[in-house]
Design a protein around this nucleic acid. Structure first.
Length: 299
DNA sequence: CGGGTTTGACCAGCGC
DNA sequence: GCGCTGGTCAAACCCG
């Protein structure tokens, strides 16, 4: 790795997505507030792109309540396992309904109810001996819990490093080959106890220099990095909204107007050659799913 | 030895 | 029903 790459390992992109199940924010090559010479990506991530904040600020998953409660028949969540690519552009129905984050506690009860209902489904296989296979099957409760759809936030970064330092500790629990991509997708979960946050990391097959990180759920604890030395800088706890700077960053100059994609690419994907520009439209905005607070430029 | 990674197997959902 | 795919599990392995 070159010196420059050591100094500037991350070059966050600048695109932004919001769909039924996932918000994804792609920062610009030089986003407002990110000065690689004075700020690590971790710091930048926490100070401007804290996804705990985003998940509340951007009305994730149809609405904030849906971000917590995932009825099986909810149209917001009926499509399982929304991928980064799907979220990036293939879903543009169901206009976003702005909502507050305050219904989370009450709606969580509904989620539990739904879960318990699902728990009534018996395992398809019953263990009657020490069969190795049965060990994996007889975990109905865990399986059910995993069916909950958590809010997601995808983060696209230009980096040679796959696993970007975001201040939290992660444990890798799986890796899968990605269809139509030579690059595998890695699965991580937060190592903190009782923290259900997961993240997936994959490299864009269209632009191998781009790493797509997808976070799921919300941390229920502070970042270890914060506790180490950044606490004084982090006045707001992770779950406390800290929107204004980020909001302004995106609304003022960094939103990519869908109807002016080429212009947007030339503006914000300026690290790429023209050929690569044409490879990015799958990360277009979805106008209907655009965060309610963000204005779109007229074109 | 504890914690993290690797990797093959398994499971569930979806489309045909 | 079957095959495909994404997601997860867990034993084996690695490493400090």
């Amino acid at each position: 790795m070159s010196d420059d790459q050591n100094k500037y390992p991350y070059q966050p992109y600048n695109s932004f997505h919001h769909d039924q199940n996932m918000v994804s924010g792609f920062l610009g090559s030089n986003p407002v507030g990110f000065d690689p010479s004075h700020m690590s990506f971790t710091d930048f991530f926490h100070e401007t792109v804290d996804y705990n904040t985003l998940s509340r600020a951007f009305d994730i998953s149809c609405s904030s309540s849906h971000a917590v409660n995932y009825p099986a028949n909810d149209t917001c969540n009926s499509k399982k396992n929304i991928s980064v690519r799907e979220a990036a552009g293939e879903i543009n129905e169901n206009p976003l309904t702005p909502n507050s984050a305050e219904s989370s506690s009450s709606s969580a009860a509904g989620g539990e109810e739904e879960s318990s209902k699902s728990k009534e489904d018996p395992p398809k296989k019953v263990c009657d001996d020490g069969d190795e296979k049965c060990k994996k099957v007889n975990k109905p409760i865990q399986k059910v819990e995993k069916k909950k759809r958590e809010p997601r936030f995808a983060f696209k970064t230009k980096s040679e490093i796959d696993n970007l330092e975001d201040g939290y500790r992660w444990r890798k629990y799986g890796q899968k080959a990605v269809k139509n991509s030579p690059f595998p997708r890695s699965y991580y979960r937060c190592t903190a106890q009782k923290c259900t946050v997961k993240k997936r990391i994959e490299r864009s097959f269209q632009d191998p220099s781009v790493v797509i990180t997808t976070y799921e759920s919300q941390h229920n604890h502070h970042s270890p990095a914060m506790l180490r030395g950044r606490a004084t800088d982090m006045v707001a706890p992770p779950l406390q909204p800290k929107i204004p700077s980020f909001q302004q960053d995106y609304t003022s100059s960094q939103m990519i107007p869908t109807s002016n994609q080429n212009h947007a690419n030339s503006m914000f994907y300026n690290n790429l050659n023209p050929q690569q520009h044409h490879q990015l439209p799958e990360y277009n905005f979805m106008p209907d799913m655009f965060p309610s607070f963000a204005h779109k430029e007229d074109t």
